[in-house]
Simulated scan of single mutants.
Amino acid sequence: MASHNQLHGVELIDCAKANAKQGIETATKLCGYGQDINVFQAELKKACQDIGVEIHELSDLITTQQTVRQEGGFDIAPESATDL
């Protein structure tokens, strides 16, 4: 769901991270910045700097865990309920 207001701080980072795989245009729009990619990127970099995280582009927010979930991974589980 797109934000009606421009997000800032941790809320912006969370929204950008959640939508990073969909591309910069989609993330910009859903975070409340419409089509203003330059302002979105500047605010995102500022928000990340404020919490001590350095990013160079939106894809820096995509974690390995997100990639495994989308591409499919594997489950590690006991062979049975009583056998570990």
Rank of each mutant, 00 (worst) to 15 (best):
R69P: 00
V68F: 14
H8R: 15
E54R: 13
A27W: 04
S3F: 06
A81M: 14
C48A: 02
L58H: 12
R69I: 09
Q6I: 00
Q41R: 07
F74H: 09
G32P: 00
E11W: 01
F40D: 12
A2L: 05
R69H: 10
K45T: 12
A16G: 04
D83S: 11
N5T: 02
G32W: 02
M1Y: 05
I37G: 05
N5A: 05
G73H: 07
C15M: 01
N5E: 04
D75Y: 09
I62D: 15
E25H: 14
H8P: 04
N38Q: 10
E25V: 15
Y33L: 09
G72Q: 12
C31V: 03
Q6Y: 05
N19G: 00
S59Y: 03
I24D: 02
Q35C: 01
E57L: 12
G73T: 11
H8D: 01
L58P: 14
V53K: 09
Q6N: 07
K45F: 10
D36M: 00
V53P: 03
P78M: 07
Q6P: 06
F74G: 01
H8A: 12
T82F: 15
S3I: 10
Q6T: 08
A42C: 09
S80V: 01
V68H: 15
V53F: 13
I13Q: 02
A47K: 15
T63D: 12
T63R: 03
G72R: 12
L44M: 12
L30G: 02
C48L: 06
A20D: 00
A16P: 05
Q49V: 11
A42G: 02
H4Y: 04
Q65L: 12
T28M: 13
H56V: 15
C48W: 01
E43R: 15
A81C: 11
H56K: 15
Q35H: 11
D36W: 08
N19W: 00
A18M: 02
L84Y: 12
T67R: 14
E11S: 06
Q49T: 15
S80H: 09
E43V: 11
G72W: 03
T64R: 11
G72S: 03
L61I: 14
A77Q: 09
D75P: 02
C48I: 06
C48H: 01
N5V: 06
E71M: 15
Q70H: 14
Q22H: 03
A18I: 05
Q35E: 05
I55H: 07
K17F: 06
V39P: 08
Q22C: 06
Q49L: 07
S80N: 08
L84I: 04
T67N: 06
C48V: 03
D60C: 07
I13V: 12
